[in-house]
Design a protein around this nucleic acid. Structure first.
Lengths: 221, 221
DNA sequence: CAGATTTTTGCGCGCCACGCAACTTTTGAC
DNA sequence: GTCAAAAGTTGCGTGGCGCGCAAAAATCTG
């Protein structure tokens, strides 16, 4: 047999991956098309050509399947982080990897925004998004630990960094689909910079630190 | 009639509050006693003396009712924040209000830890905890905005601060019920200090900043 | 090919969320 | 107090869902 690659997954594993992908994609597509309530688990399963019972072997509910793409994206963030040059500081590498991933295709168009808005209108999906974001946060934390070659002592610090960064991502995302402007990347950049700067302990004149507002407005695309 | 208090809620509102409380308390108690799977919505409703249908007028599922106490605690954090002296910086006030709330009764005993561990064992409850934490984060953000008298420009900053602080709380909580040691407050204190310090952008010798580890060990109780 | 392992599937059960329409309680104006 | 409107509760019905179980099918190992 040809060497393929070092310990290729094997047919079984590849089929599972494919099924999972197909199910989550079908779930997302159908939900965008018809709306969550008009999609039954049965429909998703039928779309992939698999029994409804099998769907529940992969996902515990349809909302989870719909949000799967959030988790998948984070796997790419992980790869990006591990590929950053070793010269960079940990923070630079992490924020670089995240920004890199989200700037891939620029800001999506208005139609996409309204589709996302429709999705987030359903409470069930908002809840599942939170679960997905938590998974994503743990993935990032593990990637940070790996990149930093952190010992047990630093695990908490890595998790804190992951939590802070993902808070910024989440906020930028909300800002993006809440407003009509294309402000995802500028907002995210600004928030990450503010996290890097930290929170001032001493009382100043105003309640918040003076930050340059350049990052708030969109850069020339 | 006696003046009671300025614009008292009215009987209707008070009854609703009472019902909500009774339901969430019953849900939590029964779940701790028997385990989530052994508690039906019907049981909770019966415990309060209300119809099962009414339960769903207050909570959309039993898990939500179980986690209600998390949200209630945040209302106390809000009050504490608004009561902090005006001399403090925003960060000091926020972290002070949070720590104040969580140091109320010191570290809970081992029995309590194992009960919490049992609760968090169920995936459904973990998910609902995340939802509750998200609610809590928004509450804190609003309280921060109120305290800082922040304009629209600073709303995002307030939300970022709330997100960062609640990340720390969440991490400290996990650390607490994961380990057998009483490390909630020390961990939380340390994480908040690291957030205040920010994340270094420049490359240093090690991947993480040198932080004094005093806060990691428990202070004399 | 043959036996072990893993996955899929059909079946069935109990629970649950929620729409609807009738009924009860609270409210506020007179 | 009386009464009508507003708000909350309840019973009923329904469709869907999550999952345990055991048989069947697919995959892996040698």
């Amino acid at each position: 047999m040809p060497p393929e690659s070092p310990t290729r997954p094997g047919l079984r594993e590849r089929k599972k991956q494919a099924a999972r992908r197909a199910l989550s994609e079908a779930a997302l597509r159908l939900t965008v098309e018809r709306g969550l309530d008009q999609v039954k688990v049965e429909d998703i399963a039928a779309e992939v050509g698999v029994s409804p019972r099998t769907f529940n072997n992969y996902f515990s509910c349809k909302e989870e399947a719909v949000c799967e793409f959030v988790v998948e994206r984070q796997h790419r963030v992980r790869d990006a982080l591990l590929a950053r040059p070793t010269g960079e500081s940990l923070w630079e590498a992490v924020t670089g990897a995240v920004l890199e991933q989200y700037s891939r295709d620029g800001e999506p168009d208005r139609a996409y925004v309204s589709r996302v808005r429709a999705l987030m209108g359903h409470a069930a999906l908002r809840g599942e998004f939170l679960k997905a974001h938590h998974t994503v946060e743990r993935l990032l934390a593990e990637a940070i630990i790996e990149r930093a070659e952190a010992g047990d002592e630093d695990v908490l610090y890595a998790r804190l960094m992951a939590g802070a960064v993902e808070s910024a991502v989440r906020l930028a995302f909300v800002e993006w689909f809440t407003s009509d402007h294309q402000v995802f990347l500028p907002t995210l950049t600004r928030l990450l910079r503010e996290l890097a700067a930290g929170f001032p302990t001493l009382t100043t004149g105003s309640g918040r630190p003076t930050t340059d507002r350049e990052a708030t407005t969109a850069p020339p695309s």
